[in-house]
Amino acid sequence: MDTILTIKGLSHYFEGLRAISDFNLDLKEGELLGIIGPNGSGKTTFFNILTGIYRPTQGSIIFRNKEISGSEPHEITSMGIGRTFQNIRLFNRLSVIDNVRTAFNANTGYSLIEALFHIGRYRKEEKRITERSIELLKKFDIAQYAMTSANNLSYGIQRRLEIVRALATNPVLLLLDEPACGMNQGEIKELLDLILWIKKEFSLTIILIEHQMSLVMGLCERLTVLDFGVTIAEGLPYEVRNNPKVLAAYLGDDINQ
């Protein structure tokens, strides 16, 4: 398996506050990596750096043999990194289909002039994008909501739509930011199957952020544990679970005494 993502010595500071410190990672194609850690340990900051929302203070990120730190978010997404958000961030007042079609923005094969006059490739491209979007929505059983505005959907369907929208950017690497947030045990189990299914169906490499151990233990092949921006453990799920440092971070130091 080829290495898809290499991160070396990544650090990020918010005016003196250390959010991520000396983070290293080697991700192979087709892997499903979990990043866990208590609230505020820098997990989402890591995603924000990876997708170009923040510029890292130090370090290098090499994605498919290209240095991407310092690139704009839309460039990074076009290169093949898709993501979802911890607190759902859909385009609320747009229809479901428009949410998905927006993700094809960089992939639209017509120019501004063709768009202004609806000539040339415009009609063919719009048809293609719409067809692709409907196809994706159908795969996730939400095509019947295509014309509904996103804020009228139920929570579970909004989560699903976020995944569809991320997949529409045609990613190689998918970043899922706490997808189980606000879900009960039954829904988590469904989500587990869904993640395994999309990984296979779209041949993806996935990084999953979660602080619920139950989901990551059943899903991830490898775990990285962050605490205050520092990697405190790495390895197979069962190894990590029994690591005293991890227990300390999650439950407090007293456990050792």
Binding site: H74, G82, T169
Partner: peptide, 9 residues
């Protein structure tokens, strides 16, 4: 932000 992460320049 979400927009820029959906490939929108």
């Amino acid at each position: 932000t979400a927009s820029s992460l959906m490939t929108v320049n």
